[in-house]
Structures are given as C-alpha cells and as structure tokens.
Amino acid sequence: MLTDSHCHLDFPDFAAELDAVVARAREAGVSRLITISTRVERHAEIAAIAERFPEVFFTVGTHPLQAAEEPDVPLARLVALSRHPKCVGIGEAGLDYHYDAAPRDIADRVFRTHIAAARETGLPLVIHSRDADADMAAILRDEMGRGRFSAVLHCFTSSAELAAAGLELGLSVSFSGVVTFKNSEALRAVARDVPLDRMLVETDAPFLAPVPHRGKRNEPAFVAETARVLAGVKGVDPAHFAEATSRNVDRLFAKLPPRAPSLP
C-alpha cells in the first residue's frame, strides 16, 4: 500500500468532491494521505478534514509564499497546534526564490521558527525549497548544528548538491509527479542516487499531475503513477517500492498510528 506523503486536500480544487477524491485514492491502493498546511490560520479547516477521514493526517505551518502574511506566528503556537492527535508534522516551510513572494529576511525568520518547532516537538519538518539551494543548505547546516531535527525535502526538483547535503544531514527526499515528465531525466538521475530507505513519494495535489495525467488536476490516487516510475528508476518491483516508501513514512512521521501488516 502506498502513502501520499504530501497533498493539499483543503484547497478549493477538491471542495466539491472531497469524499470521491479520498475514495479514489483508497481504490488506487493509497492507504494514507498527509494533507499539508500552507497557512497556520487555516489550521481548523485542515484539522477538520483529517478528523473526517480515518486515513488522512495533517501538518501545521506557513508556506514560504505566505510568509509575509504570517510573519510572526509564535513558536509556542506551532507547538500547541501540533498537539492535535492527527497532526504528524510541521510545515510546509522553507525558501522560495522563484516567486520571492516574501522578503528574504522574513522568509528566513519564519523558516527558522518552523525548524525550532520541529526540534521542540520531535515532529518532522516538511521543507519547501525552490531556486534557493545555497541558502537552504547553509540554513540546514547551521540549524542542525544548533540541535538535530528530522525533515524531508518535499517535491524535490533541486540540484544533486542539495540532495547530497540533505542526505548528509539525515533528511529524507520526496519526489512528485515532476519525476515522470519527459524532460526530467536529470531529476531521475538524482532519484537514482537517493537511497531507497530515505525516499518518499507524493503528489503535491492539486499540482503537478504525473504522466499520463499531466495537465489535469492532480489527486492522491495518481501517486501510484509516480511510484511506478520511481520503482523503475530504482530497479525494484513496484510492490516492494510501495512498501519501502511507506515504511520510510512510518519512520519519519512517527506519530502516525501503526499500519495494518502488508499481505505477503
């Protein structure tokens, strides 16, 4: 069974058919979904979705594109909200220099607050990094020196150098439907070098639908297509890949309840 380690079920794209979206994921062999926060102020909405579906869990945090909207969320508030029984991570948070929607000093401060929350709670940090490889690696090295924390580089589309830096620091790396695109050979080469026991798979739905759904709205059921391509990249059976990456999710998102044993 697969786990979609990163989707956005609270986005309006899914509002009209959320029950059907979750049902299709279940039918596609996706046994758990983690819906990821982009705004702390939407905590109640995201928590309500997770409470509605037994297989859905969530995180709390501020996306870097919203850092200027939520520049001063206190560490104590992130910690308090993370105590919800179905909250399994912090974020997504990080740096986005592609859009530069927030001043970089504010983005840096917000990101470091989320790192502190991950460190204090013991929950993993979900990291967004786009066109910010050097600064991201520098912050991660600096903050890891202040005290260890667990994290995943989500929807990885960055350089092999950032992947290597993250792996050196003990992070996991998650791949989305981008890895299935025809022009993503360099990204597939990065995935080839990421150890299987440090790899996650995700949709980032409703964005980045994998081939053969490219150009459509993405949804958690489509994580199976990304997993199939990644299994080929790693040279393993798709069932083995699904089980391995779900075990990785169990290890990283340790607050998740135990899964039912897989069939032999």
Rank of each mutant, 00 (worst) to 15 (best):
T3V: 15
T3M: 14
C7F: 10
P12D: 15
A15F: 07
V22H: 12
E27F: 07
T35H: 13
E41I: 13
R42I: 13
E45M: 04
I49V: 11
A50F: 12
E51F: 06
F53M: 02
E55C: 09
E55F: 05
E55P: 09
E55Q: 11
F58P: 07
F58R: 03
F58M: 07
P64R: 03
Q66T: 14
E69R: 13
E70M: 14
P71D: 08
P71M: 03
P71T: 06
V73W: 08
V73H: 12
R77I: 11
S82H: 06
R83I: 12
R83P: 05
H84M: 00
P85V: 06
G89Y: 10
G91D: 00
L95I: 00
Y97L: 15
A102V: 01
A102W: 02
R104K: 06
I106C: 04
R112K: 11
I115C: 06
I115Y: 11
R119L: 01
T121I: 07
G122M: 04
V126T: 02
H128R: 05
S129E: 10
S129Q: 08
R130T: 09
R130G: 00
R130K: 08
A132G: 10
M136R: 11
E143M: 00
R146S: 05
R146T: 12
R148T: 12
L153E: 06
H154I: 08
T157E: 14
S158F: 08
A160V: 11
L162P: 05
A165G: 06
L167G: 04
S172E: 10
V173C: 10
S174C: 02
F175D: 03
S176Q: 03
V178C: 07
V178P: 10
N183Q: 15
S184C: 02
E185Y: 06
A186V: 12
L187S: 02
L187N: 04
L187Q: 02
A191K: 12
R192E: 12
L196R: 01
L196Y: 09
R198C: 04
L200E: 01
L200H: 05
L208E: 09
G215F: 01
R217E: 09
P220M: 00
P220S: 11
V223Y: 01
E225P: 08
E225W: 12
V236D: 00
P238D: 04
A242G: 03
E243K: 03
S246Y: 11
N248W: 02
V249F: 05
V249T: 10
R251D: 03
R251F: 04
L252H: 04
F253S: 00
P258Y: 05
P258D: 10
A260F: 12
A260D: 13
A260C: 11
P261A: 04
P264K: 14
